[in-house]
Amino acid sequence: MKKKPPMSDNVQAFLDGATAAADEERYVLRLYVTGHTPLSTKAIVRIRKICEEHLKGRYDLEVMDISQNPKLAASEQIIAAPTLIKKLPLPLRRFIGDMSQTERILLGLDLQKTEKSPPPQS
């Protein structure tokens, strides 16, 4: 998101995302944590595991410590920690928590469908 793509590109990206196979898409993820708390550590470990399992080779995960760089908190609209932001593919999505609920993350990342049919909501 450093350079905002023009609208046509956006639309194109969306169309691509819809038609092209999910494997070809590249995921840009940011995980914001606050220092070395147990929550932070848990979240980092878990999201890495999910990415390795489901997005191997096509993800770009960056872990940011907002206690080191507090300006980010305001610019990225972070209020809860840990927060995972899916920057790409669009739409933007936020996940808060220690990433222990893998199904919800997969659902939110649009990964569930490609792997298997979604489990019944219980």
Binding site: I66, S100, G108
Partner: peptide, 24 residues
Amino acid sequence: HIERNEFEETGEYNLDGLFIRLGH
């Protein structure tokens, strides 16, 4: 900025982000 549909709870969390933001 808080938009309800944007948030997906995936487990335990706190509002440290807000604290850090305010503190800064």
